[in-house]
Design a protein around this nucleic acid. Structure first.
Lengths: 137, 137
DNA sequence: CTTTCTGCAAAAGATTTGCAGTTCT
DNA sequence: AGAACTGCAAATCTTTTGCAGAAAG
């Protein structure tokens, strides 16, 4: 993501490096505050505002997307590599799904556009809940 | 969505009907405040809190999903019918994509789970921007 | 009739903004 | 040197919560 900053003519500074580091080497989605906390280990002087400002920049570049977490908490998701979840409306858990390769069906839906990332969210009942229910019936 | 409330043993009240009406007959995604405004036409006494509470209930039932809008503003998306967007990271526009049928490839990614809705977001450069760029080169 | 839901207003948070100082290029 | 970026703290705004009263089943 640092190279994306450079390519866009933006500066690569310590605070930005810290946030990118926290994004790249942490979980695929986190809240702004979690990122602040993790990135602080890398650059202790980091302030809240810079985290938000960096996330805004990265969103504009398409490296990250704001996303509403399991209970609606605002989070940011690394999006360059593609991302699939299953939100189970029965147990309320978010199940991360295996990564998709180059030929992810989600990216086939397009016309002349150039896709470089995606976020797929399925809403339904997860396999383990579905099985539990059958057992009950 | 009213029947989903009944099926879950929850009450169907005027405020809830108003919010469901605003969701069902309005755009596929809106902010809580926009819903409040529209639903007020239907039930003028409606208060903010009830909108949030109803949206919370509908999210738990899987009829709606919180979602981060174009610039990250929290919105709610009708999700039962499936939903596809393309976020163009060049022009920043959100392009709504044609609705998918029953055999939407997005829903094929599953194992034993039962899917009843989905939200697909592609991040990339939209067709018209992609074309513009070619012309420039 | 009981339990759930509602509106109000206050409280709690999260995100944004202005500004003086710092740091890339 | 000049423009871009940062941290701080204050301001703004959205969402949540407590509670007394109303209404659905």
């Amino acid at each position: 993501m640092l190279s994306m900053l450079r390519a866009a003519g933006l500066r690569v500074t310590a605070p930005r490096r810290a946030v990118v580091w926290a994004l790249a080497f942490g979980p695929s989605h986190s809240t702004a505050m979690q990122l602040l906390e993790r990135a602080s280990a890398y650059h202790p002087a980091l302030g809240r505002a810079s985290v938000y400002r960096t996330l805004e920049v990265l969103s504009r570049l398409g490296a990250v997307r704001p996303w509403a977490g399991v209970h609606g908490e605002p989070e940011f998701v690394r999006v360059l590599e593609g991302h699939h979840h299953l939100m189970c409306s029965y147990c309320g858990e978010l199940e991360e799904m295996p990564h998709c390769g180059e030929e992810c069906p989600a990216e086939e839906l397009t016309d002349g556009s150039r896709i470089h990332g995606h976020l797929v969210e399925l809403i339904g009942v997860c396999a383990s809940c579905a099985q539990k229910e059958e057992t009950c019936t």
